[in-house]
Amino acid sequence: MTRSFPKASISFVSRTILSLCLLIFCKTSAQEISGKQLLERAIHYHDPQGNWDHFAGKLTVGMTMPSGTERLSEISIDFPNQHFKIRTIKNDKTVEYSVTNGKFLLSLDGKSNFTEEEIKTFNLTEARTKFMQNYYTYLYGLPMKLKDPGTIIDSVVERREFLGKEYLVLKVKYEEGVGKDSWFFYFNPKTYALKVYQFYHDETKKDGEYILLSDEETFSGIKIPKIRAWYVNKDESYLATDTLTKISKL
């Protein structure tokens, strides 16, 4: 025997099913992606072809400070040949730090023999060279460098408003012996482009700095932020601006 349902019942069932579908869809769309998923999408935006590990280029970077001080640096990064070099001009002095396959070479105005006063004044040491190498390859290699060993990616992604804009925020810490600071990376929620990063030595003290990124240069398929403006977390005071004025092949 064929059994029929009242039209009102059919309408109720349809509305119920529709409501459940909408509820499931809304719940799913509201869920945030994980930290690792966000990082992968950000890397895909900045380095879709995976070229960073084979990077070989020269970056010309100009720094300006509120005092009017200016500094020009040429930075050579050559991963295939394990080579790093930075040549900086400041106050009419030219300082070069380089390391190739673990061999260090330093110079001041073209000379490699220094007085104790010059070593102290210009920090002409292997430790300084290694610091500069780590510093520049880290900052210009973001967010790809967040895949390095010893990096702890927080699984929770936070939506946060910062300076009037909304971002997806990724928290990163480091294993002991790798790094001590806590870092926060702010990504455009639609494109996953890295727009801000921020670090604290001690979050409870609100110390550290934040860096605003703007404009981009594309080199070897890699989207690299062109302008980086540095500020103090505690009082938002301005520190300096780095501008990538040129990037070329070695």
Rank of each mutant, 00 (worst) to 15 (best):
Arg3Ser: 07
Pro6Lys: 10
Lys7Gly: 12
Val13Leu: 01
Ser14His: 01
Thr16Met: 03
Ile17Phe: 02
Ser19Tyr: 05
Ser19His: 13
Ser19Lys: 10
Leu22Gly: 12
Leu22Gln: 06
Cys26Phe: 15
Ala30Met: 12
Glu32Thr: 15
Glu32Asn: 14
Gly35His: 15
Ile43Trp: 02
Tyr45Asn: 03
Pro48Trp: 03
Pro48Ala: 00
Gln49Thr: 04
Gly50Lys: 07
Asn51Pro: 06
Trp52Tyr: 13
Asp53Arg: 12
Phe55Met: 11
Thr64His: 00
Arg71Lys: 10
Ile77Asn: 14
Asp78Gly: 15
Gln82Ala: 11
His83Asp: 10
Asn91Arg: 11
Asp92Val: 03
Asp92Pro: 05
Tyr97Asn: 11
Tyr97Phe: 13
Phe104Ala: 07
Phe104Met: 11
Leu105Tyr: 08
Leu106Ser: 05
Gly110Phe: 10
Lys111Leu: 10
Asn113Glu: 07
Thr115Asp: 01
Glu116Leu: 12
Glu117Lys: 08
Lys120Met: 12
Thr125Gly: 02
Glu126Arg: 04
Arg128Ala: 04
Thr129Asn: 04
Thr129Met: 03
Lys130Tyr: 07
Tyr135Cys: 07
Tyr135Ile: 01
Thr137Trp: 02
Leu142Ser: 04
Pro143Glu: 07
Pro143Ser: 09
Leu146Trp: 09
Asp148Lys: 08
Thr151Ala: 13
Ile152Pro: 14
Asp154Val: 11
Asp154Arg: 14
Ser155Met: 14
Val156His: 10
Val156Lys: 13
Glu158Asn: 12
Arg159Leu: 01
Leu163Cys: 05
Gly164Pro: 00
Tyr167Phe: 11
Leu168Tyr: 10
Val169Pro: 06
Leu170Ile: 12
Lys171Pro: 13
Lys171Thr: 13
Val172Tyr: 09
Val178Phe: 15
Val178His: 14
Asp181Lys: 03
Ser182Pro: 02
Ser182Asp: 08
Trp183Glu: 09
Phe185Trp: 06
Phe185Arg: 06
Tyr186Val: 08
Thr191Asp: 11
Tyr192Trp: 04
Ala193Lys: 12
Val196Asp: 00
Val196Tyr: 04
His201Leu: 02
Glu203Tyr: 07
Lys205Trp: 00
Lys206Ser: 05
Lys206Arg: 01
Leu213Thr: 02
Asp215Met: 05
Glu216Ile: 08
Thr218Ser: 08
Gly221Asn: 00
Ile222Ala: 02
Lys223Thr: 05
Ile224Ser: 09
Ala229Lys: 07
Ala229Arg: 07
Asn233Gly: 01
Glu236Phe: 00
Leu239Lys: 08
Leu239Pro: 02
Thr241Asn: 00
Asp242Arg: 06
Thr243Val: 12
Thr245Gly: 15
Ile247Trp: 09
Ser248Glu: 15
Ser248Lys: 11
Lys249Pro: 01
Leu250His: 12
